[in-house]
């Protein structure tokens, strides 16, 4: 038996007046399990444990959570990567309202995503086949379109914590740039006009927390830099 001590944030709105940490012992048999496997073992001990999960392979973005202080996806985070002093501490993504246990209300996060009009806009008539795009232009979308909306970045961003209603946040801005960078999109001016206020983009302080936690290795800070450049070029 090799027991792992796991401390998990618990909160059930029907019965708990305040959240608390609950301790579990999980027998990992010495294996380097993913954190998600550990959670499902905990759920076998206590079926009331609530968390989201779907793909279990890091592509759906369901199980963003805070593991020993760092945001990430439970399903692709091996214990060996997070364990500190033999202990695992699991908390919900910071800064968002908790619905229950590790499940947060992602409402404001999705609103900021919707706010940037996350869809291709092209006012020219559609051709009978596909719109052509050179491989070089297509390459510009790499590192942008792969976002899985897990919210690990935005919930690690102090600027987003303070102004979740006004600062679009790293995830939303990464997607804003994904469409600005697409050679097929013709709404660049409108997109930029919508972002030029002092908050939407300019609240980013370049702290790079977002880059440090993105489980897909994406770089919102760089995208934000590009948007700033476009905004400044536009202003002059």
């Amino acid at each position: 038996m090799s027991m792992l001590q796991v401390s998990v944030y618990r909160y059930n709105p029907e019965t708990d007046s305040a959240p608390y940490m609950q301790e579990f012992q999980v027998d990992t048999q010495g294996r380097d399990l993913m954190v998600l496997n550990v959670l499902s073992m905990i759920k076998e001990q206590d079926s009331s444990m609530a968390y989201r999960r779907s793909c279990r392979e890091g592509v759906c973005g369901s199980d963003g959570m805070n593991m020993n202080g760092k945001n990430g996806l439970a399903c692709i985070t091996p214990l060996s990567e997070v364990i500190k002093k033999g202990k695992l501490v699991l908390r919900p993504l910071p800064g968002l309202p908790v619905i229950r246990d590790l499940v947060v209300d992602m409402g404001v996060f999705y609103e900021q995503f919707e706010r940037i009009q996350p869809y291709l806009q092209n006012d020219e008539p559609e051709p009978a086949i596909e719109r052509l795009q050179s491989p070089e232009d297509r390459d510009k979308l790499d590192g942008l379109y792969e976002c899985i909306l897990c919210a690990c970045c935005s919930t690690a961003c102090p600027s987003f914590w303070w102004n979740p209603d006004k600062f679009v946040g790293p995830a939303g801005l990464l997607q804003a740039y994904r469409f600005l960078a697409d050679s097929r999109d013709t709404a660049t001016r409108e997109r930029l006009a919508d972002l030029e206020d002092p908050f939407s983009v300019f609240r980013c302080r370049g702290i790079m927390n977002c880059v440090a936690v993105c489980p897909k290795g994406l770089n919102p800070t760089r995208a934000i830099g590009k948007i700033r450049e476009m905004l400044l070029a536009n202003a002059t």
């Binding site: 869809y119 719109r131 050179s134 297509r138």
Partner: peptide, 12 residues
């Protein structure tokens, strides 16, 4: 047309 970022051949 909806924006799916397909990979491309050299001819676009």
């Amino acid at each position: 047309h909806m924006g799916l970022p397909f990979s491309r051949f050299d001819n676009g």
